[in-house]
Design a binder for these strands. Structure first.
Length: 253
DNA sequence: TCATTAATCGCAC
DNA sequence: GTGCGATTAATGA
């Protein structure tokens, strides 16, 4: 679609290539808050200073405990963000889609990342160093404001998740996870457009792989969902929503 | 195709 | 609800 030659060039470097890539002007991610603020000359000049990072499926690009140097934006692909708990259990904090920000919690005074991030499919990231970003944020209020809205939204989501984990039954948490993935990653035919393993569903819902499998097969029997290997289809969205509606759940991405 | 990995299920706790 | 192990299905080299 755009700048094919650049992509081919990237490919020839194999994994882990760090090089200058597609300009923000040509980016297709309208939801990206850099793209949205590109009319500002500050942001425009700043956008030129990004580094493009290519990740293969399954590749980790943020390691828990590593020093924070900057911020990632997802140009293309999907990513999971997690924390490791006791005896190595992963807690998936969130999934990030194209145009979203990763590593922002460590921004500011934090010295080390408290989260890890792994690409769920082949992914291209835009990386900005902390200093460059800080300069742009100080100069351009509307850009800063957009980022603030993003932080507020993240906080809201995080608070809602506390309640999910502490007050919902396992079944409700799994249903909630399905609805979350559906809101965020479904395409039109109700198939979830994200190849997650049962374990990854469990890590997000705060339960075990076995429970997820048991609940999936129960939901299948009740004709609420259908599965084909990793592909999962929401059959009866309304009924699933009804299951967790008493938790007066907020509905957003 | 064969070998590896993931998904299920049953059972004990 | 959780954790382990055996069985079966799916994936990929």
């Amino acid at each position: 679609m755009f700048k094919v030659s650049k992509q081919q060039q990237n490919r020839s470097y194999g994994r882990n290539s760090f090089l200058k890539g597609i300009s923000c002007v040509d980016c297709v991610n309208e939801s990206c808050l850099i793209k949205k603020n590109l009319l500002s000359s500050t942001v425009f000049n700043f956008s030129d200073k990004k580094t493009e990072i290519k990740c293969k499926k399954g590749q980790q690009f943020i390691i828990e405990g590593a020093p924070v140097n900057g911020l990632f934006f997802v140009l293309k692909g999907k990513v999971k963000v997690y924390r490791t708990g006791i005896n190595g259990r992963e807690q998936i904090v969130r999934f990030a889609n194209e145009g979203e920000i990763i590593g922002h919690r460590g921004f500011g005074t934090e010295e080390y990342y408290s989260i890890g991030a792994i690409a769920l499919e082949d992914t291209i990231l835009c990386y900005f160093s902390k200093n460059i970003l800080q300069e742009a944020l100080k100069k351009e209020p509307s850009f800063t404001y957009d980022l603030m809205l993003f932080y507020a939204d993240e906080l809201n989501r995080s608070e809602a998740k506390v309640k999910t984990i502490s007050q919902m039954t396992v079944r409700e948490r799994v249903v909630d996870t399905l609805l979350y993935i559906h809101r965020k990653f479904s395409n039109k035919n109700e198939f979830l457009d994200l190849p997650l393993s049962r374990k990854e569903y469990a890590d997000y819902a705060g339960t075990t792989e076995e429970q997820v499998i048991r609940i999936f097969s129960a939901l299948k029997k009740e004709n609420l969902i259908a599965t084909k290997g990793k592909k999962i289809c929401i059959v009866n969205l309304a009924l699933l929503k009804q299951e967790i509606s008493e938790h007066n759940f907020y509905l957003d991405s």
